[in-house]
Nucleic acid binder design. Structure first.
Lengths: 190, 190
DNA sequence: CGGTGATGTTAGTGTCCGTTAACGTCGGTG
DNA sequence: CACCGACGTTAACGGACACTAACATCACCG
């Protein structure tokens, strides 16, 4: 029982921390802020994480693993690259619309993670990007890998703009808009 | 002459601060860091800005004004909406590639500006967005304004992804890539 | 029932940070 | 030359922060 409770607490802390980090930045959130956000006060956090840095590292590792695993699964699920690209887009869009705070922290706060974890996160992120590049390469055999990588990063920027603009549209039309924009951008001839 | 020197110093501080804020976030940079970055030490800053917050506010105001003025000029320069959109795209891309740090700070750190300046910055940003929306509305009369606004925000996300990916490609091909991707995304039928 | 581990509390502790104070330098100006 | 404003310095102060220490609670288990 203790294990399950501990896991729930940990997840609750990570969720609250994601919201606060996304809104004010890692250095703009204090340990006491994090404690208050989950109903405890301050240093209770150290029962679940060895420190503030470790909390951020755990959060980014978890997100990167989710994205990478989801991407691998979706990219390998179907042989048609057009369908595979749509699957990747839909998966990323669902994630971005469901957890905008995690997406925000994911591409802003890597610089605040120290070296052992940082490398693991980078490796996962790179693997995710390469899934996209692999699919895209089959759709655009003319383009060289660096261009494809830059295009994928640009598409991520497009999809991750959700936190800035999601308030303007309902989730379903927003998802459709992002899907068509992302597809058009990635398949555009330069 | 003192005026010219002061202006140069002020601009130098803003430039250095942009780089540091973009890399580590507003709260991750100290006054002493800012001083060291321009060759002076610490509190010399208070000869040029009343405080750290005011420095950020000045930076964001300047960027927002530059973007809004440039957008207005480019959007109004030509009657053909296709050409106007290309002009807006090229202008924004040039800015994003020339000053990636300013672009980064511009859409991350507004939350750290207090209320009097904050409203002015928001107004300028909104004006810039509306320039894009106005041009886009002539190209896509079918779409409603909220959708167009969301599309413009998404396109900004695409164009502003430069800081994450600009190292992979030379500036000119990168600009061409962003131009074609941005154009395709904004004109995609949903 | 006594022990134990998980989980919380409050009270420090040392450090860093934004800001102010007091003072120095120096070029230009009356 | 006396003065003054622009610009810089170092020293200090008060508060905030990450983290630790010492102690409380309480379910569970032998």
């Amino acid at each position: 029982m203790a294990g399950r409770t501990a896991g729930a607490r940990r997840a609750e802390i990570l969720r609250a921390a994601a919201g606060l980090f996304a809104a004010r930045g890692f250095h703009g959130v204090s340990i006491d802020d994090l404690g208050k956000a989950v109903g405890t006060s301050g240093p209770a956090l150290y029962r679940h994480f060895p420190g503030k840095d470790a909390l951020l590292a755990a959060m980014l590792l978890e997100v990167s693993e989710r994205l990478a695993a989801d991407g691998r699964q979706r990219a390998e699920a179907c042989g048609d690259p057009h369908r595979a690209l749509d699957e990747l887009l839909r998966g990323h869009i669902r994630f971005a619309l469901t957890e905008p705070a995690l997406i925000t922290v994911h591409d802003r706060e890597l610089g605040n993670v120290a070296e052992p974890d940082r490398r693991r996160i980078r490796r996962l992120q790179r693997g995710y990007v390469e899934q996209w590049v692999g699919v895209l390469a089959r759709l655009r055999p003319d383009a060289d890998p660096p261009t494809l990588r830059a295009a994928v990063h640009a598409a991520f920027g497009l999809l991750n703009s959700t936190p800035h603009s999601a308030q303007q549209l309902d989730p379903e039309p927003m998802a459709e808009l992002l899907l068509s924009m992302g597809r058009a951008a990635l398949l555009a001839e330069s």
